[in-house]
């Protein structure tokens, strides 16, 4: 029994929205980073679903790329968070609004 592609894509969309909502709503930088991870995984899921539907391995290859990219992003992101914490003594993203115009 095959699951229809729409179901998989719907799941990916829901996951993406959950992630986006997390980024927009949470002020804690760590949670925002985690939410970004959720969004990335949603995108990866969409790739896999698409690849499976076409019967090719492209989608899975793409997911490997995304995994690698996400790992790099998390490492850079965590490094920035540590810097942020050292500078502002908080993990609140809004307090770092010094680039306002």
């Amino acid at each position: 029994m095959t699951i229809p592609m729409e179901y998989g894509l719907l799941l990916a969309a829901i996951l993406f929205c959950i992630g986006l909502a997390g980024v927009l709503v949470r002020r804690d930088v760590i949670f925002m980073l985690m939410s970004v991870e959720v969004m990335l995984n949603a995108a990866g899921l969409a790739f896999i679903v698409g690849g499976a539907a076409r019967g090719s391995a492209d989608g899975q290859v793409m997911f490997i790329f995304i995994l690698a990219m996400a790992a790099a992003e998390v490492s850079v992101g965590l490094a920035l968070i540590i810097q942020l914490y050292q500078k502002f003594k908080t993990l609140d993203a809004d307090s770092a609004s010094q680039l306002n115009g």
């Binding site: 986006l20 980024v23 927009l24 709503v25 002020r27 925002m32 993203a93 809004d94 770092a96 609004s97 010094q98 680039l99 306002n100 115009g101």
Partner: peptide, 18 residues
């Protein structure tokens, strides 16, 4: 007016992106 949009808050930027 334009400067007001650049408030430096990451979440606003993400929202605008979305």
């Amino acid at each position: 007016g334009l400067a007001a949009t650049q408030n430096g808050k990451l979440r606003w930027y993400a929202m605008a992106l979305g």
